[in-house]
Structures are given as structure tokens and as C-alpha cells.
């Protein structure tokens, strides 16, 4: 495993275990992300990628181990407090509220830190949202809903964005657009933890990749080494 650990990680996860009711999903996940990095979690279906994000956010049934954000321990704290530290979550199912219109959806997450993007900046990034800001949130197309789901967490000032499969089920041209946006967000200084099934997409944006199997992180590959590890990755991902 290549050593790419940073001196002062923004997020450091150690021995993270998580349960949904009786089922034990995570069996000691460990990884870390430096400030401004874009890191992906890769792995087959059901290895615990989404659960890892939800555990960091504090919205699983039960968890143990350690998740430090800017040096502060978050395990044992409720999710609203964790969010206030500066972590924002964009769920796989996007979580657009049908009883809220687009603008209300966008304005919903409260600002947690100074330095978030302004609404105008977000509308510049996603012009479609501005046009449809009075529409019911769930009336948008899949791609627009995804942009709304990303857009609304940019306003809050959170510096760690966790995106769960933002390209799932979207047309290639939209996937490309989302790739551009993610790169722009990285340039703006956001730290991003990305869960992806689509490795080709992940490879174009990420600095490093963590690979998960059976509720554990089993490998780490930096972007520069992806070429020579293609065979290994294919074995991990079963493609």
C-alpha cells in the first residue's frame, strides 16, 4: 500500500465499525483525507461504501471506532452537530424534497461556517436550477435533481463534501458535466470524498482511491499509479 498519509488530515477514520439493527456492516474501516484532496471509495456493491459515508455523517444505527474531523472526535455525537463542524452529505438517492420547490430545496441546509458559495454563484454553476427555481423539487430531471443535491450543500460553508454516486443513472453528457463541476469544486478548495461505481469517471477526477471489500478498506492507489494497477483494480471491482 503506497503511503500517502498527510501530516494534518482533514478527516481521519480509524477502526470504524457500524451496524444496521442486528447486521454488522463495517468491520473496522480506516482511511484519511488531506485538506483539498479528492478521494474516492471504490468497491463492489454491498461492501459498505454508502454505510461508510452514513457512519461519518452519524446516521447509521450504531457505530464505534474513531472519526476525527479537523482533530475533533465525532463518534457519539448526533448528526446535526457533525454537520455543523463542516461536513456535508449528498446521498445516493439525492434526497430532494417533494414538498419544497427548487429554491427552498437549495436554501434548506443552514449555513454552518462562513465562506460558503452565494446563491448567485451556485446559479451560475447550475443555470438550469435558476430557470426552474419555482418548480417542485422532484419534478426536475434526474440530472437536474443531482445538480440541486450538490448545489444545496455548497452554500453552507462545509469544507468536506461527501458525494454518494453522483453519476448513477445519468446520461453520459450529464456525467461529463458533473465531472467538470467536481473538478471546479476541488479548485475552489473543497475537500471531496466520492463514492463511485463508475471507475472511469472516478479515475478522471480523483487524487487517490481507497478500495473497500467486506466492510474494510483493503487497498489505496494514488492517481499516478492507476495505470500500472489496472489488473488489480479490475479484480477488486469485478469488472
Amino acid at each position: 500500500m503506497a503511503d500517502a498519509t498527510t501530516k494534518d488530515p482533514l478527516l481521519k477514520v480509524e477502526e470504524l465499525q457500524a451496524w444496521y439493527g442486528e447486521s454488522h456492516i463495517l468491520h473496522g474501516v480506516g482511511f484519511e483525507i488531506g485538506r483539498g484532496e479528492l478521494v474516492t471509495l471504490l468497491g463492489r456493491n454491498g461492501v459498505g461504501k454508502t454505510t461508510t459515508l452514513r457512519s461519518i455523517m452519524g446516521i447509521v444505527g450504531k457505530r464505534s471506532g474513531s472519526v476525527r474531523f479537523e482533530g475533533q472526535e465525532t463518534v457519539g455525537r448526533p448528526s446535526n452537530i457533525i454537520a455543523r463542524l463542516g461536513i456535508a452529505y449528498c446521498p445516493e438517492e439525492r434526497g430532494i424534497f417533494s414538498s419544497l420547490n427548487v429554491e427552498e430545496n437549495l436554501m434548506l441546509p443552514p449555513a454552518v461556517k462562513p465562506g460558503g458559495m452565494s446563491v448567485e454563484e451556485i446559479y451560475t454553476l447550475f443555470p438550469n436550477l435558476k430557470e426552474r427555481r419555482r418548480s417542485q423539487g422532484t419534478k426536475l430531471s434526474g440530472g437536474e435533481q443531482q445538480m440541486l443535491a450538490i448545489g444545496r450543500i455548497l452554500r453552507t460553508g462545509a469544507n468536506l463534501l461527501m458525494l454518494d454516486e453522483p453519476t448513477e443513472g445519468l446520461a453520459p453528457v450529464i456525467v461529463q458535466r458533473i465531472g467538470e463541476i467536481i473538478r471546479q469544486l476541488k479548485q475552489r478548495g473543497f475537500t471531496i470524498l466520492l463514492v463511485e461505481q463508475n471507475f472511469h469517471f472516478a479515475a478522471t477526477v480523483a487524487d487517490r482511491h481507497y478500495v473497500m471489500e467486506d466492510g474494510r478498506v483493503v487497498d489505496m492507489i494514488v492517481a499516478a499509479d492507476v495505470e500500472k494497477n489496472v489488473g488489480k483494480l479490475q479484480a477488486y471491482l469485478g469488472v
Binding site: 452519524g58 446516521i59 446535526n80 424534497f97 414538498s99 419544497l100 427552498e104 436554501m107 434548506l108 453552507t156
Partner: peptide, 24 residues
């Protein structure tokens, strides 16, 4: 209102609303 939007959203998906930093 904003509070009302929290309320409507929390009626739909309280977990996510809380993960946005709102004390549900």
C-alpha cells in the same frame, strides 16, 4: 417560511434534514 420549509422537509425525511445540521 424557512422554519416551515424545515418542517415540511423533516416530515419527508427527518434523517437527511438532521444531517444538514438541523436539530430535528
Amino acid at each position: 417560511t424557512r422554519l416551515g420549509a424545515y418542517l415540511r422537509a423533516a416530515t419527508e425525511n427527518p434523517t437527511l434534514v438532521q444531517a444538514f445540521g438541523i436539530n430535528v
